[in-house]
Amino acid sequence: MLGLAQLPFAILYAVADGFYVLLNYVIRYREKVVLENLRNSFPEKSALEIQQIRKDFYRHFSQVLVETLKLAAMTDAELRRRVVIRNPELLSGPFAEGRTVLALGSHAGNWEWILPSGALEFPGRAYGVYKPLSNSFFEDFLYRLRTRSGAKLIPMRDTLRDLIRRRGEGRAMSMLTDQAAGPEDRPYWTTFLNQETSFYTSADRLAAQFNCPVVYVNIQRVKRGYYDLIIEPLHDGTTPLDKEAFVLTEAFARHLEKSVQAAPAAYLWTHRRWKHKR
């Protein structure tokens, strides 16, 4: 894989075009799941429009695959040039006060470029919560990609312990919180993309307990290989929170819904986001 990552972007995007043909026309990767998700999320769209979003999604997904692979060989300077961080002061301000900021993101745009880019902008302050993979090869490969710029990874089960241990350190804790929350996760239910949807509620609980500022992180494709990483405020960390009101989770759902509606092909439609029922 490292040899492939050494190739110029122009050649890698030609490889991505091949991936697109394979995913869209040959193996039809999770096509049933993708179409069901799109039809339920956009009932107002015609069958032709749904098929166009499906094709655009496979093309975007193919490009994200090679862009993620490219992390193994990309220089810091090139990554800085390709990802522009908007509103960084929403993080640097709390960092100066020794506060942990919860950065809530999703599987949209190129989510694998978020943490390495943040680590370059804020050296020593970028942490990511993740769920370790069972496949040791991919676990090791993705771990090295995600930490290539100096970011630190925190296994999901250690999140609370880490916050206690590092209380008073100015840093960002990145969390991708758009996966399907099961009954055991004490989910918050709300309407999202025209469907009853379960969300993880850890942001509300942790922000209430540790007085964390909370931001929404949205990485938008500007053009092929270039992104804006936009930081938006959700909570300033000073107003008292009722952890059972789930105002942060609801705010995250509304921000994410707006992002997906603006660029539907850039969302990860292959995962079974709505597999749980209330």
Rank of each mutant, 00 (worst) to 15 (best):
K243C: 06
R148S: 15
H276V: 01
W274D: 03
E139F: 12
W111C: 05
A262Y: 02
M175I: 14
H271N: 03
L90R: 02
F246P: 00
P264C: 11
G168R: 08
Y226F: 12
A10E: 08
K152A: 10
S149C: 15
F138V: 02
W274T: 00
T147G: 06
V260W: 08
L7T: 01
P8E: 01
V247G: 03
T68Q: 06
N194M: 08
F57G: 00
G237D: 09
G124C: 02
L2M: 02
L48S: 15
R254H: 15
I85D: 02
A5M: 04
V83S: 09
A47F: 12
L234K: 07
N24Q: 14
F141G: 05
G225F: 14
F42R: 01
L153W: 11
F246M: 04
Y267E: 01
P94T: 04
L102P: 01
R99W: 00
E121V: 09
K55Y: 04
A108S: 15
M1N: 14
R161F: 14
W113N: 01
Q220P: 00
R146W: 13
Q195P: 07
R161A: 15
P240V: 10
A119W: 07
L90M: 08
R165A: 13
L22S: 05
G182D: 08
F19T: 01
M175E: 08
G93F: 11
T177P: 11
R167Y: 12
F199D: 01
K45V: 05
R221L: 03
L115Q: 05
L79D: 02
L65C: 10
K152M: 02
L7M: 09
P88T: 07
E196R: 12
V217R: 00
V26P: 02
D158T: 09
A73Y: 10
G93K: 15
Q179H: 13
N135V: 05
H60W: 11
W113V: 02
V66T: 03
S117E: 11
K55R: 15
P88R: 08
M1V: 07
